[in-house]
Design a binder for these strands. Sequence first.
DNA 1: TTCCAGGCGTATC
DNA 2: GATACGCATGGA
Length: 269
Amino acid sequence: MKYTVSEKGIIATIPDFDLDETLDCGQAFRWEKIDENTYKGAYLDKPLLISKISDGQFLFADTSEQDFLSVWCPYLDLDTDYSEIKSRISADDTMKKACEYASGIRLLRQDSWEALCSFIISQNNNIPRIKGIISRLTEHFSHFPTPLELSRCTPDDLSFLRAGFRAKYLVDAAQKIISGEVSLERVRTAPIDEARKELMTIKGVGPKVAECALLYGMYRTEAFPVDVWIKRVMEKWYPDGLPECCVGIEGIAQQYLFHYMRTFASKEV
DNA sequence: TTCCAGGCGTATC
DNA sequence: GATACGCATGGA
């Protein structure tokens, strides 16, 4: 990772990276686009202003060199070679097109608890409303609430969220983590089927939410969330399953396919 | 007004 | 195990 420290912040050269495609593509919900080339957000309650300053050049402001290295590099998955990943999965023709269409996607290494909550909130919901609920959640607690903080709430206490029927699911997730009934650390390293099973003991966590928590919150790249868009992708191009070149990184392939189908192929019909 | 949004729990067969 | 239906909320 090449970078220099300037008065304005850290200037880093990052290949295969697009702010919109990575921070505003439905994998994270706390990033706010404040102008054409800048996003404002936080991770582990550390703030960041990140701007594209030219092709492949990004400014990290409102942060320190230490946090750049220990927080933002891992979070943005900057040590992973996405050119290599894209080259590998481009052995498949449709995948090649999807990679070319949204070539700046990166899989964020998000916090597992926050991702779990975010995707519990996401069910039968739209992205603007998901963002609103999470924003009210973090503002109310002045940070993303811990499992302990949420476990002490009743669904009624969370009515300010306007999360509807999902509030009770958040409380159940928090309580199961505090009781030890579910351990996100155990889930993180468990064989994928056991991991899915353990997550799905939480009320409001079904196959889709479990898969999203694994992929986006635990960097389990073999997790493959299937929503309506990916269902269409599979019916259209992969009726017999994903190609061999995607084995082990189905979740990353899914990111390219999701974006491709939503913003491009959906125009065909 | 009605439909829908990166689903899931429950009832019913 | 498959399928239908309700669910909170708010924007289109």
